[in-house]
Each structure stands twice: as structure tokens, then as C-alpha cells.
């Protein structure tokens, strides 16, 4: 990565407060195009809040956000989103294929209906995530990992430039995890930028080349090799984290 690469996402002075307590505070962030970035931080650090604020889903107290230099309103079609799995009612009467097709509703715009072409695109995305045999399955009959793959497929059909994924690795098995990582790398190869909320510190360096450490404020953000250090992790998690990369053990408070 060099400084000349265009910034896929640039965030300045972003602050969000719930009931006047800031959940994220004065966030400055520049994410170059084509990186796989992990957003790492303890529970309640404001990771989900950051994503929602960037996507204009919750009101901001302050700050500006731009995608490839344009504000969100003009860059909507560039943005793909995988929400936290628990954010929807999985008993909703609909099928896997239908949920994935929803990823295309935004492009269709008001009043137009999905047709054969949309169906084919959705099927293609389902093939990529390995759910082709479950297309007609009612979504309440999916396992957690299959739900996650469904959401991923729905984001893939969006064919965005920059993806935001909130904990796609939460509670999935090794196989699904591998499948998701494979897809992340395919996205990167196609020049997409992907921001992923990630909790497993052991795998951060294997999966991602860029890291943002967040705890209400940004502790550090940059190439994984430079930023993902014991000192920074300790600044993010406090003395609570003692198990670090390279199997290195950091004595708490060291």
C-alpha cells in the first residue's frame, strides 16, 4: 500500500453518542482501496456503531464520511453490507434465494421487481458461498453458519466496491470460516475493499492486511504488520488481553 492509492473510505472527526454518552469518539480513519481490514476491539468498543454511522444508519453527532471522495448519498451503490446475524428475525416467511435477491433491490430502485436476471445473479452468489442446494430452504431452517453464508451471498450480489461486514465469523465452524476467508480474498483480488469486524485475535494477521484497533477512539490504524503490536493491543484491551500473535504470551501489565 502506498500513499498515492485512492482512499476507499475516509472518516473525519466522527462521533456518535447514545443518550449523550459517546459510543465512538472523534474517529479519523483512512482506508486505502483494495485492503482487507479488520476492525478489532473489545465488546462495546463501538465497532458496530462505527459501521452503522458510516452507512448513515444512525445519526451522527459530528463528523464527515466519504467513499472514494463522495458523500454516502452519492456513493450508495458502491457500498455492500453484511449486518450482524442476530439483527433480523430468521422466522420471517421467505426463502434463502429470496433473501439473497434482496441484495439487488437497491439497484432495482422503487417499483421495479426482480426478474430472471436478478434470480440468476442471486443463484450465482449462492453458488459462490456453497449454498446452492439450499436455495429454496425456508430461512428459519438454516444453521448459524448457513445464515451467515446467506447474508454474505446477499452482500455479494450487491456487487459493491467497499464492503462492511459485522462479525461474519461469529459462531461459524472451521469450514465456513475457511469458505468466508476464501471469498474475502476473492473480493480483494477483484480490487474490492473489505472492512470486517473481527474478534479472533489469533487469526487477524493471517486473514487481514490492514487493521484498525478501536476502543471508542481509534487506537491505531494501518498495515497489520505495523499496527497489530502487543503495545497497541494492550492500549485497546487494557490488561485483559494476554494471548498474542506468534503464540507469544504477554504477561498482563507487562
Amino acid at each position: 500500500m502506498n500513499d498515492r492509492a485512492p482512499l476507499a473510505l475516509s472518516v473525519e472527526d466522527l462521533t456518535v453518542a447514545y443518550h449523550s454518552k459517546p459510543a465512538i469518539w472523534d474517529i479519523d480513519l483512512g482506508v486505502p482501496e483494495g485492503v482487507l481490514m479488520a476492525i478489532v476491539g473489545p465488546n462495546g468498543a463501538g465497532k458496530s456503531t462505527l459501521i452503522k454511522a458510516v452507512l448513515n444508519l444512525i445519526p451522527r453527532a459530528a463528523g464527515t464520511v466519504s467513499f472514494y471522495g463522495s458523500p454516502y448519498e452519492q456513493a450508495r451503490s458502491l457500498v455492500g453490507y453484511v449486518p450482524q446475524r442476530g439483527s433480523v428475525d430468521w422466522d420471517f416467511p421467505t426463502s434463502v434465494l429470496d433473501v439473497v435477491t434482496m441484495g439487488l433491490y437497491g439497484k432495482l430502485g422503487w417499483l421495479r421487481r426482480p426478474r430472471r436476471k436478478e434470480r440468476d445473479l442471486a443463484l450465482f452468489a449462492l453458488e459462490q458461498v456453497g449454498l446452492l442446494d439450499l436455495v429454496d430452504r425456508q430461512i428459519s431452517q438454516l444453521s448459524g453458519g448457513q445464515q451467515q453464508r446467506t447474508f454474505l451471498a446477499r452482500a455479494l450480489v450487491q456487487d459493491a466496491q467497499i464492503y462492511f461486514m459485522d462479525e461474519p465469523f461469529a459462531a461459524v465452524d472451521a469450514i465456513t470460516e475457511r469458505a468466508i476467508v476464501k471469498i474475502l480474498h476473492q473480493l480483494k483480488e477483484r480490487g474490492k475493499t473489505v472492512l470486517v469486524v473481527h474478534h479472533d485475535l489469533q487469526t487477524v494477521e493471517d486473514y487481514f492486511d490492514w487493521v484498525t484497533l478501536l476502543n471508542v477512539e481509534v487506537v491505531a490504524s494501518g498495515p497489520a504488520a505495523e499496527v497489530f503490536t502487543p503495545e497497541n493491543l494492550q492500549k485497546t484491551y487494557g490488561g485483559r488481553v494476554s494471548y498474542l500473535h506468534d503464540g507469544q504470551v504477554l504477561a498482563a501489565g507487562d
Binding site: L55, R76, S77, S87, M102, G103, Y105
Partner: peptide, 13 residues
Amino acid sequence: LVTFDQEFAGANG
């Protein structure tokens, strides 16, 4: 869409 997933609907403009 809005009944199933408000957030995603919002993120799609």
C-alpha cells in the same frame, strides 16, 4: 425488505 431487515434496507439507500 423493510419488514425483514431495516438496516440492510437503509444501507441500500
